[in-house]
Every structure is written in structure tokens, then in C-alpha cells.
């Protein structure tokens, strides 16, 4: 995977926060996880990628972060459905960014949302994941990129 490809996924995530959360998100120090069990919070929006690269990219965030984000958006119904929609939208923004930059090389699936079940996040066998902390206000979400 190239630096530029990774930057595309990250930019998609931070742009969402800047647009929706009215406050830019900062990117924490990225690191590797090779045990096949990367970070999963309560809400996860995931896209699958095929073509030139294969694997999974997902955005995972905690309930507390999504609650604040919803409040910042002026949403009064702080339901699980709305939180799931949020992470789905982030995944969709990442997908849109990837399509814009690498649409000719990648096949990108429709975003899927899982809530609280780490076992629903299936990563390619043997692939190492890059975990990128996304810091927004006092909260931290994670963007995980696992491509073969």
C-alpha cells in the first residue's frame, strides 16, 4: 500500500468531521496491529475493497464520541440508529474519497455498519492492519486499513 492511498482514506475521515462536526479532527500517531484483532469500538462503518488492492477499511467510534457528534449536529434523538448512521456516513465519505482518487483501480463495496460486535469485522488472513487514531475534541475514534 502506498502513502497516498493511506492518505486518501484518512483525508476522507477528517473531512467528514470538519464538515459535520464543525471542528476539524486531528490524526494521531498511526501504528500497526498484526494479531488480526484491531481496535473495534461500539459502532463500526466498514467498506470492502477489491481490484488493485484487496481488503477492508473501517471507521470505528465509541458511543460517547458519536453522542457528542450528534449533539453538535443539532440532533436531539441520540439513538443507536442515528449513531450507526453516522459511522456509515463516515465510511461512505471514505468510500467517496477512494472512488474519486482510485475509482479506476478499485472496486469499493457499499458501506456496512456493525454495532459492538468485533467478530463481524473480518480481516484478510495474515494481513497486518494500520490503525490511525482520529482525535476529535477529547474523543478518539480509529480508522483501520487492512489491505493485502
Amino acid at each position: 500500500m502506498s502513502d497516498a492511498e493511506l492518505a486518501t482514506f484518512v483525508e476522507g475521515t477528517t473531512r467528514y468531521f470538519e464538515t459535520i462536526g464543525h471542528q476539524p479532527a486531528s490524526v494521531g500517531s498511526p501504528y500497526l496491529v498484526d494479531n488480526g484483532k484491531p481496535t473495534v469500538h461500539e459502532f463500526t462503518g466498514m467498506i470492502n475493497i477489491a481490484g488493485k488492492r484487496r481488503g477492508v477499511v473501517y471507521f470505528t467510534a465509541s458511543r460517547s464520541m458519536l453522542t457528542v457528534l450528534l449533539m453538535r449536529m443539532g440532533e436531539t434523538e441520540l439513538t443507536e440508529e442515528n449513531m450507526a448512521d453516522l459511522v456509515g456516513e463516515v465510511a461512505n465519505t471514505i468510500s467517496g474519497n477512494a472512488r474519486r482518487d482510485y475509482g479506476t483501480d478499485f472496486m469499493i463495496s457499499v458501506p456496512q455498519v456493525t454495532t459492538g460486535h468485533a467478530d463481524q469485522v473480518v480481516l484478510p488472513d495474515g494481513a497486518r492492519s494500520i490503525v490511525i487514531p482520529i482525535n476529535w475534541r477529547s474523543h478518539a475514534a480509529h480508522l483501520v486499513v487492512c489491505l493485502e
Binding site: M1, A7, V10, S26, V27, G28, S29, P30, Y31, R128
Partner: peptide
């Protein structure tokens, strides 16, 4: 500096591990 600047490092580290 921000985490964005460290993205190339993590990619290269992955390559080194491999």
C-alpha cells in the same frame, strides 16, 4: 507535526516487517 506526517512511516514499517 501531526499524525498525518507519520503515515509514510507506518507504511514503511509495514514493509520492513514483511
Amino acid at each position: 507535526l501531526s499524525g498525518n506526517d507519520f503515515l509514510p512511516l507506518v507504511v514503511k514499517l509495514d514493509d520492513l516487517f514483511n
